[in-house]
Design a protein around this nucleic acid. Structure first.
Length: 312
RNA sequence: CAUGGUUUGAACCG
């Protein structure tokens, strides 16, 4: 299994999906058993490559090789479909999964709830929650958060917030992930006021904000043109012994770049001691381009190769 | 020397 997965990954990285199938057919011909789990890796690989149709076809091709898809394969495919907002197809695959005799597990339910949320299907989500309970599968904090995060991405933070009551009735309190998702949802909707109400509420309830929570709010403050408040919150974050990570750095640089303070942004990045990611470079390049400093932008572009992080 | 460690909830550029 390990060898099989490793080979699939290597071929995927080179976008040689044809080679993957050659290998699988070859193994079958020679009588080696192929572990079905390996196909989950392949399905995800197609997903990352944006080849959704091909991901769906993996199920058929498995049948051709005389193999039956596992729950993990169905879950992987559901995730690919949800990521690409193909919710009708996800629904279709889910029904096929049930027909094949699989019960939805935590991963299945999380993926579907996230997908229903992301496509604003509140009623369908409620129906799934009921169906799960009828089958003695009880939704937990993660299930509810997956749904709420989806709704937030759909620009429906108020609908998301309403599920806190359902969650509480089932005996679960929102955790730091739930709060961060809701805060991000209200920030995205431009309701910073409500975002900070939730921020204060979580602190009052003894739920400690983490780097996700702070980064979300710092990003929103910059976007609202409140650079000063963003800096204040950054200080607050550091005083609460929460250290910035690479995403926080990217957010700061993005914010400072908008203020056309690229030098300050670079200094800040060095000071935090973060290691530049592809996103870091993209953020900086984007900042320089907006300032029409193409020479600086290209300097960074070339440095990406030297750094071993080629442009995407 | 190299590669890999199936699948699910929150933040940044594109």
């Amino acid at each position: 299994l390990r060898i099989c997965e490793a080979m699939i990954r290597i071929l995927e990285r080179r976008r040689q999906f044809g080679g993957v199938w050659e290998m699988l057919e070859d193994l079958t011909r020679k009588g080696y058993p192929i572990p079905v789990e390996a196909f989950g890796v392949l399905i995800k690989g197609y997903g990352y490559a944006g080849m959704v149709e091909e991901a769906i076809e993996v199920l058929e091709k498995m049948g051709n090789l005389g193999l039956k898809a596992s729950a993990g394969c169905y879950n992987a495919l559901l995730e690919v479909l949800v990521k690409h907002n193909r919710i009708a197809e996800a629904e279709n695959i889910y029904q096929r999964m049930l027909l094949a005799g699989f019960k939805p597990d935590k991963i299945t339910s999380n993926t579907l709830l996230h997908g229903f949320g992301k496509s604003g299907k509140v009623k369908r989500a409620r129906r799934l929650l009921e169906h799960l309970k009828e089958n003695f599968i009880y939704p937990d904090a993660i299930n509810y958060t997956a749904l709420m995060a989806g709704l937030c991405k759909a620009g429906m933070p108020n609908e998301a917030l309403s599920f806190v009551d359902d969650m509480t009735e089932d005996g679960y309190q929102p955790d730091v992930v739930t709060y961060s998702a809701l805060i991000a949802g209200f920030c995205k909707a431009g309701n910073l006021h409500q975002a900070f109400i939730l921020f204060n509420q979580m602190v009052d309830r003894g739920c400690l904000p983490n780097v996700f929570t702070y980064s979300t709010l710092i990003y929103a403050l910059f976007k609202a043109g409140k650079a000063h408040d963003a800096h204040t919150l950054l200080n607050e974050m550091q005083q609460s012994l929460c250290s910035a990570n690479i995403v926080t750095c990217n957010i700061l640089m993005n914010g400072l770049g908008k203020e056309k303070k690229m030098d300050e942004a670079r200094a800040l990045y060095d000071e935090q001691g973060c290691v530049a990611s592809v996103e870091t470079y993209n953020t900086l390049i984007s900042g320089y381009c907006k300032k029409s400093k193409l020479d600086e932008a290209f300097r960074l572009f070339h440095r990406m190769y030297v750094d071993g992080r080629p442009p995407n």
